[in-house]
């Protein structure tokens, strides 16, 4: 995954690994089948929920601040590179996963997509 080069949300959608897409306010807009399997929510259940649902408690502040800073400044430090971050599933289990985040402007606002691949053994 470290050699991934995904430039658009559309490209992201075509990945086989779990993918989530959120709108400019941080609400989940789309998840693929792999996501449903990995995290335990159906697409219908999770659509419209806040992204923090799948983020462990201790990263919420960092998420909110980082997300808001990007919206305000257009500069993000975590985009388009593999990140080792913890994630949370429907049962509240936290696990280590590789994240790859892409941001894209659509209809005058930002759309974000993340590919989240749980790491083996966690």
């Amino acid at each position: 995954m470290s050699n991934l080069d995904i430039r658009s949300i559309e490209e992201l959608r075509q990945q086989e690994a779990p993918v989530v897409v959120v709108d400019r306010n941080g609400f989940i807009d789309y998840v693929n089948q792999a996501f449903e399997q990995a995290f335990g929510w159906s697409a219908a259940e999770i659509r419209g929920q806040a992204l923090t649902l799948i983020i462990p408690e201790h990263l919420h502040d960092a998420h909110h601040l980082g997300f808001s800073r990007f919206l305000e400044t257009g500069r993000g430090s975590l985009l388009r590179r593999p990140l080792g971050l913890r994630a949370r599933d429907r049962q509240g289990r936290e696990f280590e996963a590789e994240h790859y985040i892409v941001a894209e402007r659509q209809n005058g606002g930002w759309v974000f997509g993340a590919l989240i691949r749980p790491l083996e053994g966690s």
């Binding site: 306010n25 941080g26 408690e57 201790h58 990263l59 919420h60 502040d61 960092a62 909110h64 601040l65 980082g66 997300f67 808001s68 800073r69 990007f70 919206l71 305000e72 400044t73």
Partner: peptide, 29 residues
């Protein structure tokens, strides 16, 4: 979000080291 974003940008770039923890002492930001 706009307010938060501005705050984050400001805090990120000042020379003093700033962090906060949760109630268990873990770094939140």
């Amino acid at each position: 979000r706009a307010t938060l974003g501005r705050m984050e940008a400001a805090l990120s770039n000042i020379s003093e080291a700033i962090a906060w923890t949760d109630a268990r002492g873990r770094i939140q930001w």
